[in-house]
Design a binder for these strands. Sequence first.
DNA 1: TAGATTGTTAATCGATTAACAATC
DNA 2: TAGATTGTTAATCGATTAACAATC
Lengths: 215, 215
Amino acid sequence: MSEKTISKAVIKRLPRYYRYLGELRLQGVKRISSGELSDQMQVTASQIRQDLNNFGGFGQQGYGYNVSFLFDEIGKILGVDTRKNIIVMGAGNMGQALTKYTNFRSYGFDIIGIFDVDPNLVGRQVNGIYIQELRDVKMFVESHHVDIAVLAVPKEAANTTAEHLVELGIKAFWNFAYTDLQLGPDVVVENVHLLDSLLSLSYGIKNHSNQNPVL
Amino acid sequence: MSEKTISKAVIKRLPRYYRYLGELRLQGVKRISSGELSDQMQVTASQIRQDLNNFGGFGQQGYGYNVSFLFDEIGKILGVDTRKNIIVMGAGNMGQALTKYTNFRSYGFDIIGIFDVDPNLVGRQVNGIYIQELRDVKMFVESHHVDIAVLAVPKEAANTTAEHLVELGIKAFWNFAYTDLQLGPDVVVENVHLLDSLLSLSYGIKNHSNQNPVL
DNA sequence: TAGATTGTTAATCGATTAACAATC
DNA sequence: TAGATTGTTAATCGATTAACAATC
């Protein structure tokens, strides 16, 4: 790789820029300066310029940034320009809720399969998608292009499930199971540990000074 | 406040310590050194000791940390020692899934109410709790002690809903709506922006070097 | 051109890691 | 006591902010 690696902190901020720019675009705003965006987003203008310049000079001196152009560029950086196929492992509360949540589709993410071990669930439909037997996932992955697997299985099953999918060639996991996956270095994992989030809120209740939300 | 404020980075790591210690305790492990915990958690021993010492000397030289004691102490810091009542605003996919997710209860969080504007949902039960009219939330909050409100409403409704609840005295929000709430400084907000999480995973797919998951 | 605002370097700040004296 | 390991200070590293020259 020739490009310098981008820090995790920067990457975590990109979706938020993307969201604000998307809203500005919808409002018909054509251009924006780092100063104006700074006011709206409550981050420093300096940070905005630094962050964006990790990926290239998207602005123009004396003018600012073209909202629509910058929105598209950040979209490309985030990979929203190519659609992604997703399978959901586990058709419990969370698996079903995520499958029903249609908004991901408008950002290029298509849920194309959902799997569970429970025979009572298999055959039911969630958002027009039939729940399939977990054992059929191999056949499914071999006959469909799958970019991302959502892990919405019990934590005891999470790592085994993921390892199985890694063998089938899946390299990206959106992990809702409350455990840290042990997978190879070429596998990408994004954890959503809801209890961690709730616990840090709980901490904040006791210590509610003027701390800002973690964005 | 006399105590020095703890950095957000430290707070975000506490639930993970809590989880590992809880598992060690279940496994019957009585004591652990920062070095051993470091191996398991893949963080430096130095960081573990620094983090814990923000809150007090929980260990003992030459011995390490008593697992059960440390678990309880971190639990207290996170506020798990006092039960919290939660209401869920919005009985859509996410609101229902969170209400059904019974595991929060074992950490001291009780969901005691769920509200929606949709008359088709009102009166139905979710996990034994009747969905109530949104307009009845005032009466409910005035007659029940509510610590936390979950915002699982559409993003357009999130800020208004939250402001209303702030007037009723609620000071902590677990926000699943895809927007940044504008609330007063004495209100605590913890955001769960799932799309942000998915987008950063999407970024990682393109750039899957040996980056570790964001824990 | 003059004014505005970026891109980028330099300075500051904070967080992580290393080291080691204290002490169990 | 000797060995182990913490608590804590000092050193390093990285991220954020400030400043300003480049330039539209």
